[in-house]
Simulated assay, not measured.
Amino acid sequence: MSVIIIGNQRVGKTSMVVALAKGTVEGTLENVKIAHPDPQSLIRDKSNLGTGDIAPTFDKEEEPLLLRINLPSGSERDVRVQWIDTPGEAWSKPAWQESNPEKYQDLVHTLGQSQAVLLLLPPYRYRTQEIEDTPEFEEILDPETWKKQLKERLTLLRSHCPSVQHILISIHKADLFHNLEEEKNTWQYNTKTSFLWGKHDTHIRKTYFSLADDIIREHNSLPPYLNPKFFVTSIHHPTLLELPWVYLGAYFANA
């Protein structure tokens, strides 16, 4: 399974997978673990040696991962993933696209050939009273800018991903704009019970994506009818961070 992650600079594309590695090492993840490569090596490779921060991605990078996922059937399966990380400038800065036409065309080609696309969106000003004092407040977009960027990304996906099997859209770093404790407790994945993916998707879309409901409806009404699934994720909430990967693992366990 090839999964390409796209989104703005600093939206958390690399840190999402590093968080899976850290959760594997620390034992905070229950249903998704990185079996290969060695998660500690992955953390080191993707971190700035001087600061320990996640190193920025300047070019397309590919990493074969072996994920050990607890599937809805109750069985644990190894799922091979070709994780494709991308530079945020490629998707958010037309000047970068114009200056790097060959790299951009290669990314667009890779996007269309992937089996799954995970689009990470930044949070927007949803409930500002909860987040104004956080140091990351400047990363949160105003609602109109957020809607504009979502529309641009959906247009990109519709143009270049007609045969992609699964498109997942997540507001990442969602803890910056909303208290996720209730979501974490409500949607904690458990292999012993039937997880209601459809109900989860409807809830997340109505709660966090209602701002762009008209844009999503228009997107879903046009060919090739991609109908993405919606999530909210945060590296600080493992139960939510796992869900996109469990969802994909259920489909690609035999790939």
Rank of each mutant, 00 (worst) to 15 (best):
W91H: 03
P94I: 03
F137V: 14
F137Q: 08
R127P: 02
P135E: 10
L107W: 06
L107Q: 07
A95I: 12
L118H: 06
D78E: 11
T110L: 15
L118K: 05
W146S: 03
D142P: 06
V108D: 12
E89F: 06
G112I: 08
D133H: 12
V117I: 15
P94T: 03
S92P: 04
Q129E: 15
D78W: 01
Q129F: 15
K147A: 10
E102T: 15
L118T: 00
E76P: 01
K103H: 15
G74Y: 09
Q149A: 12
E89N: 10
D85T: 11
P101Y: 01
T86K: 03
S75K: 15
K147D: 07
T110F: 11
V108M: 13
G88W: 12
P122L: 00
T110R: 15
D142Y: 11
T145Y: 04
S75Q: 15
T86Q: 04
S92R: 15
A95G: 05
G112N: 08
Y104Q: 11
P143S: 13
S99I: 06
D142T: 09
T145H: 07
L118M: 07
V117N: 02
Q115Y: 08
A90R: 01
I84V: 10
L121A: 04
L119C: 06
P143F: 14
P101W: 00
E136C: 00
Y104D: 06
E102C: 09
E130N: 08
T145S: 08
V117E: 02
L107G: 12
P87F: 03
K93P: 03
K93D: 13
K93E: 10
V81Q: 01
G112V: 08
D78P: 00
D106Q: 15
I84R: 07
S73L: 13
W83V: 02
Y126I: 13
R125Y: 02
S73P: 02
E130C: 03
R80M: 12
K148S: 14
S73F: 11
L118V: 04
K93L: 09
D133N: 12
